[in-house]
C-alpha cells in the first residue's frame, strides 16, 4: 500500500499544484490500483455533484405554526415544574437547615419536652374543633350543615378557579413574550 502514497491522497485532493498533478498523472499511467481508485472516485464525484435537493411535504410552514403552539405549551409546563422543584428544593433546604440548627441548640431532654408540649397542643386543638362541630350539629339541623359544607367547597373551587385563571394569564403573557 505504501508506494501508492502520496498519490492515493492526491486522487481525492481538490486543489493540487501543477507539479503534483503531473506526478499523479505519471503514477496513474503506471499503477493499475490507483487508476481504478481514481475512476471510482470520478464516478462518485459525478453523482455527488448532481446533488438533487430533497423537498419537504407541502405545508411545512403550516405544520411549523401548529407545532409551535404545542411546543410552547410543553415548554411552559416544563418551566412551571422547574420553578416548582427549585422552590421545593430551596424550601426543604431551609427547613433542613433550621431543623439542624435547633437540633444542635436544644438538648435531648429539651426536645422531648417540646414534642410532648406540641402533641398536647395539637390534641387540644382537635378536641376543641370536635367540640365546636358537635355543638354546631346539636344547634343546627342537618340541611344547614350540608349547606355550610357546600359553601366551603364552593369557595374552595372558586379559589382554584382564580388560581387557574392567574396561571393561564401568566401563560398567555409568556406566549406573547416568547
Amino acid at each position: 500500500m505504501k508506494p501508492h502514497q502520496p498519490y492515493e491522497a492526491w486522487i481525492f485532493e481538490e486543489d493540487l499544484s501543477q507539479e503534483e498533478q503531473q506526478r499523479l498523472t505519471e503514477h496513474l499511467s503506471q499503477c493499475e490500483a490507483c487508476r481504478s481508485l481514481r475512476e471510482k472516485w470520478l464516478g462518485t464525484q459525478t453523482e455527488l455533484q448532481e446533488r438533487a435537493m430533497a423537498v419537504p411535504r407541502a405545508g411545512f410552514t403550516q405544520r411549523w405554526k401548529t407545532s409551535l403552539v404545542v411546543r410552547k405549551q410543553r415548554e411552559q409546563k416544563k418551566q412551571a415544574w422547574r420553578v416548582f422543584w427549585i422552590f421545593s428544593g430551596v424550601a426543604s433546604g431551609v427547613m433542613a437547615g433550621v431543623f439542624t440548627y435547633f437540633l444542635t441548640q436544644i438538648s435531648l431532654a429539651g426536645w422531648l419536652e417540646l414534642s410532648v408540649e406540641m402533641i398536647h397542643q395539637v390534641l387540644g386543638v382537635t378536641s376543641s374543633i370536635g367540640g365546636v362541630l358537635s355543638a354546631w350539629t346539636r344547634l343546627y339541623p342537618f340541611p344547614l350543615t350540608l349547606f355550610m359544607v357546600l359553601l366551603f367547597l364552593l369557595s374552595l373551587l372558586g379559589l382554584i378557579a382564580l388560581w387557574l385563571f392567574a396561571l393561564s394569564r401568566t401563560f398567555q403573557e409568556g406566549k406573547e413574550r416568547a
Binding site: 438533487a52 419537504p56 411535504r57 405544520r63
Partner: peptide
C-alpha cells in the same frame, strides 16, 4: 408528529428520492 399519515399522492420529497436512488450516493 400528529400528522403521520403518508399521503398517496406523489409528493416532491418522494419524487426526488426515487430519482436520486437510481444513483448510489
Amino acid at each position: 408528529p400528529e400528522e403521520d399519515i403518508p399521503d398517496a399522492a406523489p409528493d416532491p420529497a418522494r419524487v426526488v428520492s426515487e430519482r436520486d436512488s437510481q444513483g448510489q450516493i
